[in-house]
Amino acid sequence: MSTTRPGVTIIPIHGKTPKIHDSAFVAPGCVIVGDVEIGADSSVWYNCVLRADVSRIVIGERSNIQDGSVVHCDPPRPGDPDGSPTVIGDDVLVGHMAMVHGCTIEDRGFVGLGAIAMNKARIGSDAMLAAGAMLTEGKVMEPRQLWAGRPAKFLKELNDAAIAGMRIGVAHYAQNARDHSSAIGAMGAGAVDGQA
């Protein structure tokens, strides 16, 4: 597990230090705070913020959090001793500028561009929250469902072609992360930090 990355701000807080698998890619410009765990071959893209200062954020393997997204969580409260951690499974796609807050995204779930998922919401496996949608607190998307709108509502069941497309997206991001990691490595840490 790595605790330093070129151009990435990694901040321990409340005795919790982010744990980033050595094979994961975290792009320069990201801020990773507190009780965050990022699994093997996952990727966090440019200018994302993952802030686990009041609960935890867990990201599984081969998942990607795309550019400009924000991931946060909520603390325990009276009547809610577990709070709202953010738990993201394996092979998950989170599109650019998404807001993922105190929710669960099961394996192979998809959050579209600019979408919002709120506390205690759940996105089922192979389910898709459409671009720009807002999944409100406590709503549950069953596996293979497409939800859209603000607030998001069930639209239709996803067919096999849509599921296959999401799998292709996961593979693309895993490879692209390796390519970006190599490109950044070739630049050298000084260039990444703006010193070259």
Score class of each variant (00 low, 15 high):
Met1Trp: 01
Met1Lys: 02
Ser2Ile: 13
Thr3Cys: 01
Thr9Gly: 00
Ile10Val: 13
Pro12Phe: 03
Pro12Gln: 02
His14Tyr: 11
Lys16Gln: 13
Lys19Met: 07
His21Gly: 00
His21Met: 00
Asp22Phe: 00
Ser23Tyr: 00
Ser23Leu: 00
Phe25Thr: 00
Val26Lys: 01
Ala27Thr: 00
Asp35Ala: 14
Ile38Met: 03
Ile38Asp: 07
Asp41Arg: 14
Ser43Asn: 10
Trp45Val: 04
Cys48Arg: 04
Val49Asp: 02
Leu50Phe: 08
Leu50Trp: 08
Ala52Pro: 05
Ala52Glu: 07
Ser55Pro: 04
Arg56Lys: 14
Ile57Asn: 09
Val58Gly: 01
Gly60Ala: 08
Glu61Phe: 02
Glu61Val: 11
Arg62Gln: 12
Asp67Ser: 12
Asp67Pro: 03
Ser69Gly: 07
Val71Cys: 05
Asp74Lys: 12
Pro81Glu: 12
Gly83Glu: 13
Gly95Thr: 08
Met97Ile: 05
Met97Val: 05
Val100His: 00
Val100Arg: 01
Val100Trp: 01
Gly102Arg: 06
Thr104Val: 15
Ile105Thr: 08
Ile105Leu: 15
Ile105Trp: 06
Ile105Arg: 06
Arg108Tyr: 14
Gly109Asn: 09
Val111Thr: 05
Gly112Tyr: 07
Leu113Asn: 02
Ile116Asn: 04
Ala117Thr: 15
Arg122Cys: 07
Ile123Lys: 06
Ile123Ser: 07
Ala127Leu: 09
Leu129Lys: 11
Ala130Glu: 13
Met134Asn: 13
Met134Val: 15
Lys139His: 13
Met141Pro: 10
Trp147Cys: 10
Trp147Val: 10
Lys156Phe: 08
Lys156Thr: 13
Glu157Trp: 14
Asn159Leu: 07
Ala162Lys: 14
Ile163Val: 15
Ile168Lys: 15
Ala171Gly: 07
Gln175Thr: 09
Asn176Trp: 12
Ala177Asp: 07
Gly188His: 06
Gly188Ala: 06
Gly190Arg: 12
Ala191Leu: 03
Val192Gly: 00
Asp193Leu: 08
Gln195His: 09
